[in-house]
Amino acid sequence: MFVPRLVAALVAASLTVLLVGCGSVTAAPGVAASPRPAPREAYLVGVRTLTVDAGSARPLRVTVWYPAAAGRVAPGRFPLVLHSHGLRSLPALHTALTTRWAAAGFVVAAPTYPNTNLRAARFSRHDVRNQPADAWRVIRHLTRLAGTRGDPLAGHLDTGRIAASGHSAGGFTTAGMFTSGHPERLRAGIIIAGGGMAGSFAGPPATLLFVHGAADQVVPHHVGRSAYARTDWPRAFLTLPGQGHGEYLTPGRPGFAQVLAASTDLLRWRLYDDPAAGRRIAAGATRAGVTHFENHLGPA
């Protein structure tokens, strides 16, 4: 079902400060150039919902936020971000990040996982192990829609440039997507208050951003650090001293601006080949007394 509605314009306005000062895009050697430069201004945001494999034993309800203009997907082709919720959560509880990423020029898709969401009839934390495969089903479905004449996403999705992100169990789900054999088009991962899964961080290298509260009592900080230490891929670790499992994901709370800036610039760098964004990550992530940033991302 396509439900065009615009999210409040303040989301786009709040992103404008993150998008100024962006230079032209230069592709790295051997990498196909992005079909368009990274956006310089924030978009309005539209939202639609759809169901993947509706008649199967494991249907997935998916919320999709997208850059919007005149009540439809904005002109152009946009990279994809697959975002995963945590235990007893929902995509709607993650809009502080997902709508802002969409305003910055990304199509953001968030599945409602069948057995770990807030309203699951048969809740099971063990079902997290099945969620990386669910996430890939969503990506394949959206890839088909992007080539389907008449679909609102047709011609608007850059399926060669994908990132994955997630919070808590969604962070573990995200790590589980980076296993041996994952396609090179999965270029970046954002793991928030999560950790690794069996087989994580294998296959083609990608760029990773870990975000974790140092006082997290749900997924302890050392779990995220252990996952971080398991890979020598380009990576960074953003710690929020004194903070718990996710209060820093609420607009206006300490650390939110730094998490938003670092994650948005990481996505712009890796999915739009925007080196200026790559060079901004450390500065955007750092605020004395609020964050600590460990940087092994390499040159932008």
Score class of each variant (00 low, 15 high):
Ile190Asn: 15
His292Leu: 13
Ala109Gly: 04
Gly160Phe: 05
Thr51Phe: 13
Arg140Met: 02
Asp216His: 01
Ala69Ile: 09
Arg36Val: 11
Ala277Ile: 07
Gly196Lys: 06
Gly171Pro: 03
Asp151Ser: 07
Leu82Lys: 09
Pro67Lys: 13
Thr51Glu: 10
Leu186Trp: 10
Ile191Leu: 06
Pro29Gln: 03
Val47Arg: 15
Asn130Met: 14
Ala276Arg: 11
Asp53Ala: 15
Ala146Trp: 02
Pro29Asn: 02
Thr51Ser: 12
Leu208Lys: 00
Val25Asp: 15
Ser180Pro: 05
Leu297Arg: 05
Asn117Val: 04
Met197Asn: 06
Thr179Asp: 11
Arg149Val: 15
Arg77Thr: 13
Ala103Ser: 15
Ala13Asn: 06
Phe201Trp: 07
Thr98Tyr: 01
Thr250Phe: 07
Gly150Val: 12
Pro91Arg: 02
Thr231Val: 03
Pro114Met: 00
Gly224Asp: 10
Gly203Tyr: 10
Gly170Pro: 12
Ala215Ile: 06
Ala215Pro: 00
Ala57Ser: 15
Gly242Ile: 03
Ala32Asp: 10
Asp151Trp: 09
Gly181Ile: 14
Pro39Gln: 04
Ile139Lys: 15
Gly71Lys: 03
Gly189Asn: 08
Val223Ala: 07
Gly255Thr: 09
Gly170Ala: 08
His245Ser: 08
Ala121Val: 09
Ser56Gln: 09
Gly76Lys: 13
Ala109Pro: 05
Thr148Asp: 13
Leu50Gln: 06
Ile191Asn: 11
Leu97Lys: 01
Thr264Pro: 03
Ser165Thr: 12
Pro67Ile: 10
His156Trp: 10
Ala12Val: 00
Ala38Phe: 05
Phe293Leu: 02
Val20Ala: 13
Gly155Ala: 04
Leu157Pro: 09
Thr179Met: 11
Arg72Ile: 06
Gly246Met: 11
Leu271Gly: 11
Phe210Tyr: 09
Leu208Arg: 03
Ala12Pro: 00
Gly189Val: 06
Leu267Asn: 06
Tyr66Val: 00
Pro29Ile: 02
Gly55Thr: 09
Ala121Ser: 13
Thr291Val: 04
Arg161Cys: 07
Glu184Cys: 08
Pro204Trp: 10
His141Leu: 00
Asp265Val: 00
Gly170Lys: 01
Asp274Ile: 01
His292Val: 15
Ser84Arg: 09
Thr173Met: 11
His212Met: 03
Leu157Met: 04
Thr63Tyr: 14
Ala146Asp: 07
Leu118Glu: 14
Ala109Arg: 10
His245Asn: 04
Thr51Ile: 13
Leu97Trp: 01
Ser84Phe: 03
Arg280Met: 04
His292Gly: 13
Ala135Tyr: 08
Ala120Ser: 10
Leu249Pro: 01
Ser14Trp: 10
Leu249Gln: 03
Leu208Trp: 01
Ala169His: 14
Arg5Met: 11
Val290Lys: 05
Phe2Ile: 15
Arg253His: 13
Gly23Thr: 04
Gly30Ser: 03
Ser56Thr: 04
Asp151Leu: 01
Gly244Trp: 00
Gly298Ala: 07
Glu41Tyr: 01
Ala92Asn: 13
Asp127Tyr: 10
Gly155Leu: 10
Glu184Asp: 13
Phe123Asp: 01
Thr51Met: 12
Phe237Asp: 11
His182Cys: 12
His126Met: 09
Arg72Thr: 13
Ala109Trp: 04
Gly105Asp: 03
Arg40Asp: 08
Pro35Trp: 12
Thr98Leu: 11
Ala214Val: 15
Ala262Pro: 06
